[in-house]
């Protein structure tokens, strides 16, 4: 019986994505053109087949029986969500208000508790970026 390894998971994902690309994504997201040597769907179709074949090879003969580190994955997702929320906040409230809070949140989550470094990361660094971009380079910040 086949064991579940990260390579097998990745291989099956590749096959699945190749099939989705071939039968749904490419027909949906490219225009039908019936002339020329390289049609809009030619390269995506070739790549879909490559993904299916290479995915089959990977799922069939995994090169290393490595597992998935769910703890690392969970922590990365937490930071990722925090940055995405920060980006949404920047889009609504602007860099000047959100950047110090985003930097502070990341530092606190990392375990930083020293006032000097918290001040440096949450106040001095965002202020230096603002000074350099908006004042020195005269470019608008988001």
């Amino acid at each position: 019986m086949m064991s579940i390894t990260s390579d097998r998971v990745a291989g099956f994902c590749s096959i699945f994505f190749g099939l989705v690309l071939l039968f749904w994504l490419t027909p949906f997201a490219t225009e039908t053109v019936d002339y020329g040597w390289m049609r809009p769907k030619t390269l995506p179709d070739i790549l879909a087949w490559i993904l299916i074949f290479a995915g089959s090879a990977l799922a069939g003969v995994p090169s290393e029986p490595a597992g998935i580190n769910f703890l690392l994955f969970g922590k990365a997702v937490t930071y990722f969500v925090l940055i995405v929320l920060g980006l949404f906040a920047i889009a609504h409230f602007g860099y000047l208000l959100v950047a110090p809070l985003l930097a502070l949140a990341i530092m606190l989550l990392l375990g930083e508790r020293r006032w000097f470094w918290l001040f440096t990361g949450a106040v001095l660094v965002p202020a230096a970026i603002w000074l350099f971009i908006e004042i020195l380079l005269s470019r608008p910040l988001p």
Binding site: L87, I106, E112, G121, V125, P142
Partner: peptide, 26 residues
């Protein structure tokens, strides 16, 4: 050699600002 808390939060801010400038928006 500053703590990674400062370096990584600064790197994230710089990447957000830099990419926003080079691509013309968020």
């Amino acid at each position: 050699t500053a703590p990674e808390s400062v370096i990584f939060s600064a790197a994230i801010l710089l990447c957000i600002v830099g990419v926003s400038l080079s691509t013309g928006g968020l």
